[in-house]
């Protein structure tokens, strides 16, 4: 029964995609994202050199008026509940060393400003790029003598959201000159353009070639990641970037890699770079 439903869904998806190509072209919203009437976000940016698109756009522009409104007001944005939870975790001691994040880093508003805009970064010890989730786990193990968070643990999502939120409005900028970042960028790019799954789609099939069109009822964005972790109306919860990557790959009807594996870390490096210049929107609100 379930299989049959999935098959139908797959057929519908393909049919919808064809329709999207021929009929449903819709421009992104002609709108400015100003949070609480004071903080203007950059939702359209000039692409970095070598970028395939003419303009880098935030996914916010592809959402309906009602969804966009939720992100414009920090009170109405349900993601802010998780920012508050993250602040609580930041100040709570954990692990054998009896330390909290604040024990070493003090006020996050000062010490974490800019962090969310510049990760992933090269980690010389691990000899690979790491994202904020992995940086938190490194701190927990090395400095707090605490257990690393399991992938998508509620506290991992809340703390990552809190740390990224300290860079709200700052432009995304990954430093590809660190360590071997450039070759990870290349690997990520290869993944981005590789077709996969029973539906034979690459990231580019939807987010580069067809952004602005509809896949069935969904208005396809450029797939930028400047708002992650993102509050998704569908889950009514925070969704981490690697969870979203896995969801997208699953929807091509492919086997999906584990979170934080080389293939997904490389993809994070590359996709983050594609959003260069957009403001960090964490916690963004999406459908």
């Amino acid at each position: 029964m379930l299989k049959k439903t999935r098959m139908l869904a797959a057929v519908a998806a393909v049919a919808g995609f064809a329709l999207a190509g021929s009929y449903a072209v819709a421009e992104p919203a002609d709108d400015d994202l100003v949070i609480d009437g004071t903080m203007k976000m950059t939702v359209r940016a000039k692409p970095p050199e070598g970028h395939p698109l003419d303009e880098v756009r935030s996914g916010w522009l592809y959402r309906t008026e009602e969804t966009r409104a939720l992100e414009e007001d920090t009170f109405q944005n349900p993601g802010m509940l998780y920012v508050e939870r993250g602040e609580e975790i930041w100040n709570t001691a954990d692990g054998k060393a009896g330390k909290s994040c604040a024990s070493c880093h003090g006020e996050a508003a000062a010490s974490m400003k800019g962090v969310g805009a510049s990760f992933p970064k090269w980690d010389a010890d691990a000899k690979r790029p790491i994202n904020i989730e992995l940086r938190i786990n490194k701190c927990r193990q090395e400095n707090m003598q605490a257990e690393p968070y399991k992938f998508d643990h509620a506290d991992q999502k809340a703390l990552t959201t809190y740390i990224k939120h300290q860079s709200l409005g700052m432009p995304v900028s990954v430093d590809l000159s660190q360590g071997d970042m450039q070759s990870w960028w290349e690997k990520g790019k290869e993944t981005y353009y590789t077709r996969t799954g029973q539906l034979n789609l690459s990231c580019a099939s939807c987010h580069e070639l067809n952004n602005g069109k509809y896949i069935r009822a969904d208005h396809l964005s450029q797939g930028n990641v400047n708002g992650f972790p993102t509050y998704r109306l569908k889950q009514a919860n925070m969704v981490s970037l690697h969870n979203r990557f896995r969801g997208c790959i699953r929807d091509t009807r492919a086997e999906y890699p584990k979170a934080f594996t080389d293939v997904l870390m490389a993809l994070e490096v590359y996709v983050t770079w594609r959003g260069t210049g957009l403001s960090v929107e964490t916690p963004a609100v999406r459908q």
Partner: peptide, 21 residues
């Protein structure tokens, strides 16, 4: 935007009225 969306909905019956919860 709404018009295009409506067109898709009209053309693709499968896109409408399926439980989302």
């Amino acid at each position: 935007m709404n018009l295009s969306r409506r067109q898709v909905l009209t053309l693709s019956a499968s896109a409408v009225a399926v439980a989302a919860t």
